[in-house]
């Protein structure tokens, strides 16, 4: 677990020789020691494919690799930061919400359409967040950003959680998501034009929700 929350909006990461961190470009606030920051063209070890996928999807969040020996403080835009520790499971997160993550995590891109069918594609259109979601898998930690504080809502069998797509941050576990239209929801959530849907998450896992309907 290389991340320590210093405040609700700033994490500190230990960088050790032989270990790599990835972070969003421009998210370094300060560092001490001998630390190198390199723009990542490939986006990580498995990244070439992932990044190509993302380029197509226009969801290219520039990353940089962080290597060396020292301490780095990360934060971005004053957004709240939430640290998620993975123990072999998979985190699904929009790439622009990723502040920094362990290089030990396998990074991939998931076409949401394959999971949620047609509705998954709608979801991309609804949220404007793209059809592709970044996946991180393995053992390690990721620091994600949210507008406002983050609420963790467990998802259990028979207890689905419904989330405003705009407030959705990330999820993990064996979770199916689909867009649904609760009766009346369309009228209720008519803040924007396309928010006629709610995201229904079912299965077993956890969903991270931010205290805001604003996108980052």
């Amino acid at each position: 677990m290389p991340f320590t929350l210093l405040t609700s909006r700033m994490v500190e990461a230990q960088v050790l020789p032989g270990q790599t961190l990835f972070s969003q470009r421009g998210a370094m606030l300060a560092y001490r020691g001998d630390v190198r920051f390199t723009p990542s063209i490939t986006g990580g070890q498995r990244g070439v494919r992932g990044m190509i996928g993302r380029r197509i999807a226009d969801e290219d969040t520039p990353l940089m690799t962080v290597e060396g020996q020292g301490t780095v403080m990360f934060g971005h835009g004053g957004h709240h930061v939430h640290v998620i520790d993975l123990v072999g499971d998979t985190l699904y997160v929009e790439s622009d919400r990723l502040l920094a993550f362990d290089g030990s995590l396998r990074q991939g891109t998931m076409f949401m359409g394959s999971q949620g069918g047609v509705m998954g594609m709608v979801r991309g259109q609804v949220t404007g967040q793209g059809l592709f979601t970044t996946t991180l898998e393995g053992h390690g930690s990721a620091a994600v950003m949210a507008h406002g504080g983050v609420l963790e809502l467990p998802i259990d069998q028979g207890r689905p959680v419904h989330v405003d797509p705009q407030a959705y941050v990330a999820h993990r576990g064996d979770v199916r998501n689909k867009l649904s239209t609760a009766i009346g929801w369309r009228e209720m959530v008519g803040r924007g034009s396309g928010e006629a849907f709610q995201l229904e998450l079912s299965g077993t896992g956890m969903v991270y929700v931010q205290a805001s309907e604003e996108k980052l």
Binding site: M10, R25, G26, A27, P39, P62, M64, H76, G78
Partner: peptide, 27 residues
């Protein structure tokens, strides 16, 4: 023109005795 800047090429460097105050923001 590929690759771009990491965004971290330039910092203020502090040495000596004292205290540095940080906040989380780029805005």
């Amino acid at each position: 023109g590929l690759g771009g800047a990491s965004g971290e090429e330039h910092q203020f460097e502090f040495v000596g005795a004292g205290t540095v105050l940080l906040q989380s923001t780029e805005e």
